[in-house]
Amino acid sequence: DETGKFLVLALYDYQEKSPREVTMKKGDILTLLNSTNKDWWKVEVNGRQGFVPAAYVKFL
């Protein structure tokens, strides 16, 4: 149950560059965990948590 969690859509592919980031593919649906930083949002994708560039995702 994803109640209270926001979902975001990956607009572009992103390859993680550090262990704190996660890789996503364009079209992936991600669970948004934290968006307090304007540049990097914490998400969960494929069972992994990490950061992606905020400009690469949008709210569903």
Rank of each mutant, 00 (worst) to 15 (best):
N37M: 08
N46A: 10
P19H: 10
D1Y: 07
R48D: 04
G47R: 04
T31K: 13
E2H: 15
N46D: 14
F6N: 12
R20M: 13
R48M: 08
L7I: 10
P53S: 02
K58V: 15
E21P: 04
N46I: 04
V8S: 03
E2M: 13
T23V: 03
K42V: 14
K25Q: 09
E44K: 07
T36F: 10
Y14C: 02
N46L: 07
V45T: 13
V22L: 14
P19F: 09
L30K: 00
K38I: 10
G50N: 00
P53E: 02
G50Q: 01
W41L: 08
V57A: 02
L7Y: 15
V57Q: 00
D13H: 05
E16I: 05
L9K: 08
W40A: 02
L33Q: 03
W40C: 06
Y14D: 01
Y12T: 09
K17G: 09
E2R: 10
L60N: 06
G50Y: 02
A55S: 14
T23R: 05
L9G: 03
R48Y: 06
L32E: 00
Y14P: 01
M24G: 00
S18V: 05
S18E: 09
A10L: 03
L9P: 00
L60I: 15
G47A: 06
T36L: 10
Q49H: 08
M24D: 00
Q15H: 13
L33V: 12
K42M: 15
T31I: 15
Q15F: 14
R48Q: 09
K58T: 15
L32R: 01
L60G: 05
S35E: 07
N37I: 06
P19C: 08
V52P: 00
L30I: 08
W40H: 03
D13T: 05
N46R: 11
S35H: 10
G27M: 03
K58Y: 09
S18D: 13
N34D: 15
K42R: 12
V45F: 14
V8D: 00
D39K: 12
T23L: 02
A55N: 14
F59D: 08
P53G: 02
S18T: 12
F59K: 11
Y56T: 08
D13K: 02
F6D: 11
P53R: 03
L9T: 10
D39N: 12
E2T: 14
L30E: 01
N34F: 06
G50F: 04
V57K: 00
E2L: 11
Y12C: 12
S35N: 15
K5C: 12
T31C: 10
Y12E: 11
R20Y: 14
Q15I: 15
L60Y: 11
T31P: 14
K42H: 12
I29L: 08
S35Y: 11
L60R: 04
D28I: 03
E16T: 08
Y12L: 11
M24E: 00
T23I: 03
D1I: 13
R48C: 05
S18A: 09
F51I: 07
K26S: 07
K25H: 10
N37T: 07
K5G: 12
P19E: 12
K58I: 15
G4W: 11
E16S: 15
Y12Q: 13
D1E: 13
N34K: 07
S18Y: 06
P19Y: 09
T3R: 11
D1T: 14
D28M: 11
K5W: 09
Y56N: 06
D28A: 07
N46V: 05
V52D: 00
E2V: 14
L33S: 02
W41M: 05
R48T: 07
F59A: 10
F6P: 12
V43S: 00
Y14H: 04
I29W: 05
